[in-house]
Computed example of a mutant assay.
Amino acid sequence: MLKSSSFTREQLENLALQGLSYADDHVSDPFNIKEVSERLGMSYSYFYHTFAEVMKEPFWQYVKRHRLELAAGLLRHSGYNIGEISDHCGYATTAALSKAFKQHFRESPLQFRKILELPNEKRTIQITQAITSAAGDIPLSSFFSYDRCERVTLPDNILYYSLISRGQNPIAEMMARMTHFTGIFQKMKTLYDIPQSRIITGTLDSVPVTDYEKLSMFAGIAIPATDYKTLIQLDGNFSYLMKKRIPGGSYLRLPLPMDFATAGIPMYDFISRNCKEGIFKMSGNHFYISLTQPNFSEIFIPLLRKHY
């Protein structure tokens, strides 16, 4: 176990982010702070204080908030029942989720599911529209059509990523820093010769639920989980990157002649509208934008199989 004096400030920030990454990647699994701190080579106490200082929120408060917000996102966009959502979000029983959910949102899961527009949803969309308004007069609605979607089957992927926003204005930070991070991941893709990988962007959070200022936007490279050789190399050479599993399965793929910033708001409108109308339901909150070219992108939306 390393002592606190063994870490530089940059290393402490990275370790806090690694703790956040672990919590996100194990949202459905039981774990405690001691297990996470030991994995990171830190004492319980030092990890607790480091995470709170760096992330401006105690670790277990983040875990609870993150799980409940993801549960709220599943209530919003998936076809899962509350028992299934409990399992997905790390609650042992439906009663445990319902109690925690009502304490946090002041609504029961059933009541929450009936809300047509959430306060955070409206505010996040308004802020993001103001920041990404450079799209101008492009007629976006014609591109965001279910008829343009292709249903595809994707393998399980491992995502190596960096958070590109941790401040008060995550979308603005994302736009300002995206070119830098996509350049890094493009070099990795070329260096390790992984043509089946995708450079993607998205959020760890549930967009209609999480406060705008707390959204964690990421950029990363998703690699098929069966590419063991590459994964071993990346684990050895890029241990500072955060890491998470992206489940494979049935997805909708929607190609778009626009960049990620232009696609963001109409993408969310498209997902929200189709989920509300029952055209499709999502299997999780892990939809993302694949950055294929500077002015071309693809949206991937995970589908719930039992609705087909």
Rank of each mutant, 00 (worst) to 15 (best):
Y288L: 11
L15H: 06
V207Y: 14
E10A: 10
G236H: 11
G202R: 03
G278N: 00
T50Q: 08
F112W: 08
Y288R: 09
Y44W: 09
M217E: 14
G248N: 06
D269Y: 11
L17I: 02
R305C: 01
T93Y: 04
I127N: 06
P266G: 13
K99L: 09
H180T: 13
F31Q: 02
D147T: 06
T128W: 04
S6K: 01
A72L: 01
M258V: 05
H66A: 05
E117P: 00
L110N: 14
M175P: 02
S197T: 10
L231S: 04
Y161C: 04
I127T: 12
K281E: 00
F287T: 04
L231E: 01
R113M: 08
I138E: 14
N157L: 13
G19K: 02
G249Y: 07
Q293T: 14
R9D: 15
I85C: 05
H307R: 10
G136C: 10
G236I: 05
L234S: 10
E107T: 04
Q293D: 15
I271S: 04
I279G: 00
S297K: 02
F144I: 06
F280M: 01
G249T: 09
Y48D: 03
P58T: 00
D29H: 07
L241S: 07
M175E: 14
E277I: 02
A261D: 14
F270Q: 03
S78I: 00
N81W: 00
Y62T: 02
M258D: 07
F51T: 01
I131E: 12
G79N: 03
L118Y: 08
K306P: 00
Y48A: 08
I301S: 07
C149V: 15
H104M: 05
T203M: 14
Y91N: 04
S108N: 03
S78Y: 01
A225N: 12
F47A: 12
D156H: 08
I115E: 00
E13N: 11
L304Y: 08
R123Y: 08
K3L: 15
P294N: 10
R123M: 12
I299S: 02
I125D: 11
H49C: 04
L256F: 13
M242D: 09
I223V: 15
